[in-house]
Nucleic acid binder design. Structure first.
Lengths: 233, 233
DNA sequence: ACAAAAGTGTTACACTTACACCCATGT
DNA sequence: ACATGGGTGTAAGTGTAACACTTTTGT
C-alpha cells in the first residue's frame, strides 16, 4: 500500500478560522469581519489566518483572537476541518476551524482591534465568503450539544449572573424557550451554582432585584472527573 | 487582517486513514496493516493513503477501502483531523481520518486484498505508527457515542440477526455488559426491528434456536426525520 | 396601590434499573 | 431426562414536562 508522499503532495495550505461567541447578558453574538482584499474583497467572513507549515493551529488561533479582540485567554475548542478542494479560489486551503466563548462587556463590544470586525446577533449571521456559513452552522450545532451536556455556558456569562441570564443564554443557544421552574430546579439540583448573597436589578423598570450566583468551578472539576453529565434535553 | 496565502504556505500534504470496524456476530474487530516501507517499516498502522491536491478525501478513502477489502460500499463517516506539525517525519502531513462499519463474513475475513492487512480484536489494538493509536481511540469514542444515540449497529450486523448478537455488539462497542431483559425491552419498543419468522441455532451446542430479526430501515428514516433519538445510556 | 419582574410546588407520566426463573429444543 | 442457551415480567425509583400564582421591591 502506498503511503509515500511525493513532492507534489506537498502543495496544500492550512488556515484556521474562529467562530467567537459572546453573550452580553441578553443576546448571543458572534464576531464577523469584512474582507479588505481579494479574493471576496468587501464580503463578510470569519476571522481567519494562514497556519504556517510548522505552526500549531491552536496557537495561531489564539494569536488571531488577540489581534482582533485584544485577548486570547478564552476557552476555545477545535470544531472541525473544512477541506473541500475548491473552497478557496487561490488553491487548496484546508481550514481547521475553532470556536470560542467569551463574556461580552462594553469594552470588548466597542473596542475591537480593528474596524473591520463587528459583533452580530447569532441568529442574524449574514452571508459569508468561502464556506464560512457552513462553519458557523456547524459551530451552532456544537454549541447546542455542549450546552446540553456540559455546564459550559459559564465562560459566556458574567462572573456573577442571575438565573434569568443563564436561562436566557440557554434559550439563545438552544433556540427555544425553556420552562422557568424546571430550568431552575435542574440547575440548582446540580449544585454547581453558589449564591453570592448579592442582588442586582435587571433593568431600570424592574423593581424587585434578582439574586446573583456564581459557578463553582472546583466542584465542577471534581464532578467532571467522576464522569458527570449535565444533560439539558 | 492577513488572509492571503503566499507560495510558501502551500507546503502541506494531505492524507486520509480509515478505522474499519467489522463485527462477525461475536467479536468487534478492526483492520490493521503492516508498513512495508519507511518511515516505520514493519510497524503496524491504519490503512492510509495520500490525498491528491485536487481530490476529495471521502472518495480517496473509498478507493482505499476497495483496495484493501474489495468493497467500498459501507457507510463511512469523517472522524476528525490529526494535524500535529511533527506527526509525520517526512514533512507536515494533515490526516483527515474516517471510520467505517461493515458486516464481517468469512470471505471478508480471509480474502483481504493483500497480506499486509489483518483483522484484530478491537480491544487488542497493537501499538501503531504515527499517531494512529490516537485515531483508533478517537474512533472508539465516536462509535460508543453513535451506538448510544443512533441505531447505527445495523451496518455491522448480518442482514438478519438475533437479539443476542445485537446485544453482544452493543456490549463490545460500549465496553460493558448489558441486562438482557432491559436491552430487549428497549430495542423492541423502538419498533425498528421486524421479525422474520426464521430461526437459527447460535452454536452446535445450543439446543433452542434464536429468532432472527431484521432492521426496518424505512421506518428508521421516517423516525429520523422527526428527530428521533435512540439513546442507550 | 400599582407595576414589574422574581421566585416558587405539585402531579402525572415515562423511563431506568435491578433482579431470577421457566421454556423450547436437540441429544 | 438432561443440558444448553433462549426467552420472559414486575416493582421501585428517578427524571421530565406541564402548569399559574404569590412575593418582593421601587415608583
Amino acid at each position: 500500500m502506498n503511503v509515500d508522499f511525493k513532492p507534489d503532495n506537498f502543495q496544500v495550505a492550512l488556515a484556521t478560522s474562529v467562530v467567537l461567541y459572546g453573550f452580553d447578558g441578553h443576546d448571543l453574538k458572534l464576531l464577523i469581519g469584512t474582507k479588505t482584499n481579494d479574493p471576496f474583497k468587501g464580503a463578510d467572513f470569519l476571522p481567519t489566518i494562514p497556519v504556517g507549515v510548522k505552526e500549531e493551529p491552536e496557537m495561531v488561533v489564539r494569536k488571531l483572537m488577540r489581534k482582533v479582540t485584544g485577548f486570547d485567554d478564552w476557552p476555545i475548542e477545535r470544531l472541525n476541518v473544512f477541506a473541500d478542494p475548491y473552497r478557496n479560489p487561490l488553491g487548496r486551503v484546508v481550514n481547521i476551524a475553532f470556536y470560542g466563548t467569551l463574556r461580552l462587556n462594553e469594552e470588548l463590544e466597542n473596542n475591537l482591534g480593528s474596524s473591520e470586525f463587528r459583533w452580530v446577533n447569532s441568529d442574524q449571521t449574514p452571508p459569508l465568503a468561502f464556506d464560512h456559513n457552513d462553519i458557523v452552522d456547524y459551530s451552532k450545532e456544537r454549541l447546542k450539544r455542549r450546552v446540553k451536556r456540559r455546564p459550559i455556558g459559564f465562560s459566556l456569562l458574567p462572573r456573577e449572573f442571575t438565573l434569568n441570564q443563564i436561562q436566557r443564554l440557554y434559550e439563545c443557544a438552544l433556540g427555544r424557550e425553556l420552562d422557568k421552574r424546571n430550568f431552575r430546579r435542574k440547575l440548582l439540583k446540580s449544585e454547581l451554582l453558589v449564591e453570592t448573597g448579592k442582588t442586582v436589578r435587571s433593568s431600570p423598570r424592574a423593581k424587585r432585584p434578582s439574586q446573583l450566583f456564581r459557578f463553582d468551578g472546583k466542584k465542577y472539576r471534581t464532578l467532571s472527573l467522576e464522569g458527570y453529565d449535565f444533560v439539558y434535553q
